[in-house]
Design a protein around this nucleic acid. Sequence first.
RNA 1: GGUCCAGUAGCUCAGUUGGAUAGAGCAGCAGCCUUCUAAGCUGCGGGUCACAGGUUCGAAUCCUGUCUGGAUCACCA
Length: 594
Amino acid sequence: MNIEQQIKTAFAAVFEKHYKHHLSNEELILQQTRKEIEGDFTVNVFPFVRFAKQKPEMLAQTMGEELVKELKEVNSFNVIKGFLNLVLHNSFWLNNAKQALREESYGYKTVDTKTAPVVIEYSSPNTNKPLHLGHIRNNLLGYSIAEILKASGQNVKKVNLVNDRGIHICKSMLAWQQFGHGETPESTGEKGDHLVGKYYVQFDKEYKKEIKQLVEAGKEEKVAAKEAPIIKKAQQMLREWEAKEPQVYQLWKTMNEWVYKGFDITYKRLGVDFDKIYYESETYLLGKEIVIDGFKKGILYQKDDGSIWADLTGEGLDQKLLLRADGTSVYMTQDIGTAKLRIQDYNPSALLYVVGNEQNYHFDVLKIVLKKLGYNWAEKIHHISYGMVELPHGKMKSREGTVVDADDLIDDIVKNAAEITSKLGKIEGLSKEEADTLFNQIGLGALKFFILKVDPKKKMLFNPEESIDFNGNTGPFIQYTHARIQSVLRKSANYEFTEWNQELIINNKEKSLLKLIYNYSEIIANAAKLYSPAMVASYVYDLAKEYNQFYHDNQILKEEDRTKAAFRLDLSHITANIIQSAMLLLGIEVPNRM
RNA sequence: GGUCCAGUAGCUCAGUUGGAUAGAGCAGCAGCCUUCUAAGCUGCGGGUCACAGGUUCGAAUCCUGUCUGGAUCACCA
């Protein structure tokens, strides 16, 4: 039982003895005492005055006196208005520090790999264009959430679903066929995903041109959009693809290979990975079968043109198309198939999807359709919905060329890290290779922290200027704190120390650090519960900030009292370890020098 | 129009199930390096928590309404 629970239990027992009323664990709220006030844990007794029939101050006073007697960890207390502030013996915090020193992965729970896994899907790229800033948020969130879940003791499987088929893929294939003159990544030196993306854009251009021509010839815009020859050709190509027509299939394979090679580079730079990759081309037929089966059972219905639909009006939603009139699949169809496949593959306890909030409706529908089809496991689906990334000028729009390309962004930020780091004279004595590694760590550290520190549920503004700031609440600030500690640790070899014990007298800064150290495992648990890397980011920033203040105010190696020196060195050691481990949960590496 | 989400300092964001005087960073101003890494530390200024009601001992937090912004309601994914 942790100390919070002990206090709550003791509080309830004492309260019942005095006032003949039982307080449930839920109504008893224990919070950490705010910094300006003396104390470690605080109970607000206001909610209980009606049971005690006593003034809040009196009640708090009585409870304080009793708790000091009852619990050996509680040293003293004070009462301010209705707030009972409990002060623990310093030995409690010091003991926890000893534990943090002993435990290899302090704060983490061990994973039982025999339990049913949590399957988390993230990334889910389309193979028709390169990754952009929006994908970066997705990838960083997915990776980090998975790592946090693992640290909280869950058995996690990371999966990726590659949207490698569909009308959008045919569009870039068609454009390449018509306008590509046989270009390849090798012949142009262009990264494969960028090359394919170029043709996707070109398709859109041509399509628009044809629509415009048809409208000028007197067609309505809607009709024109349907009748434009190039879109007809793309649709024809999709049918040929589903029929595995050899030429189309070969082209599709070739172009997808180009894209995968490009993606691999970007994934590697971002440091994300997967346990399994699903390809929509391998799963969509399963979805198709399920839909046809559902139609035969009368759960779904068919329109005159042959298309198959789900009627969701009973659930307050609309009609939803599941198979087109020409028999080809839509996005929903394949998601039905992959969900079922994942259940078969893993028998998971939960199916998580890291997907943007623009698809909230899609996931509502997915769950309802699956339930209608009789799959009880639909309940296990949870959409981790995150907000869009916006730029200072507004939204990213591929058509207007305001998309921030993932590769370009990483290049820029690493370049910037190199400039600043060099200017600060931090690369003296480093080899070219070591320096490059450092630039990458700092640049990506800045980028990742900048994105992950924002609450995933909220939309975020990506200001390029702020993202390359390395001061204040940033990744490099935290990395720097870690490097600083490492420097102290390296030098400690030249000093003698005397082992400290629980009797040690500590100052305020030391105590603040001890408390933050104590909080780490609960932060991980909460971040896991809320799927929020931002909570970890916020915590590790607080920790680094607190350490820097401590570092500024106290001598460590040169402290005269060698017992205190030993303690401060240990505090530094623990802090560095937590910074490293917390940053790892965010997918950020911390250098030993910078 | 229906549904959903958001609105906190000049800007970007914290604020864990309702609790004490609403916090950081950036930007601005003023200080601190012969001493363990100054990518650091300290101080100053900056707020009608969109607005109006309600719930109660107590509301940035919960409820209702209004305003503003966004997402979505496709034979796109």
